[in-house]
Amino acid sequence: MLLGTKIEANVNGMALMIQLPTGLHVVDDAYVAEHDKLAREADTSQWWTIYDVATRYKRQPAWIKDHILFPPRLEKQLHGRCVIYDGDGGGRGYLFEPTAFSKFMREWFPEIAKDIREGTTK
């Protein structure tokens, strides 16, 4: 193991030394919070395609269409609110507004899971 950063401190009168392996770093909570904020913003700063959604939810685009986009009661919730459907304008494919679609998936997950369990897509 290659040794990198050495951290020395005095804790309650006792000397403490920690040697971190190369490539590991100690960061404070503010740094982690800023990193997480920037990662979230980068992920939601542009619309997702159906391929982005398929990758995110680990399903094929056809599965997303059959179980999320096409069931009429779900389409009614999605169409124009957080999904632009293929053919709505210019043939660009499906476009998803990231924040609203993520919220929809969290809220509707129990219903979607129930439909899949029962083999129904109403």
Rank of each mutant, 00 (worst) to 15 (best):
M1C: 06
G4L: 04
K6F: 08
K6M: 10
K6E: 14
K6D: 10
I7F: 05
I7K: 00
A9R: 14
V11C: 08
N12Y: 13
M17I: 09
L20D: 01
P21Q: 13
P21L: 09
T22K: 13
T22Y: 09
T22P: 04
L24S: 08
H25S: 14
V26C: 08
D28C: 11
D28S: 09
V32Q: 14
K37L: 10
A39P: 00
A39N: 09
E41N: 10
D43F: 06
T44E: 10
Q46S: 12
W47L: 08
W48M: 02
W48C: 02
I50Y: 02
V53R: 02
R56G: 05
Y57A: 07
K58A: 15
R59V: 08
P61I: 06
A62D: 11
A62K: 14
A62N: 11
W63A: 06
H67G: 05
L69N: 04
R73F: 09
R73K: 14
L74A: 03
E75H: 08
K76N: 10
H79C: 09
C82R: 03
C82K: 01
V83W: 04
V83Y: 03
G87T: 05
G91R: 12
G93F: 02
G93T: 01
Y94V: 00
F96N: 03
F96S: 00
E97R: 10
F101M: 04
F104R: 01
R106P: 03
E107K: 07
W108P: 01
F109V: 00
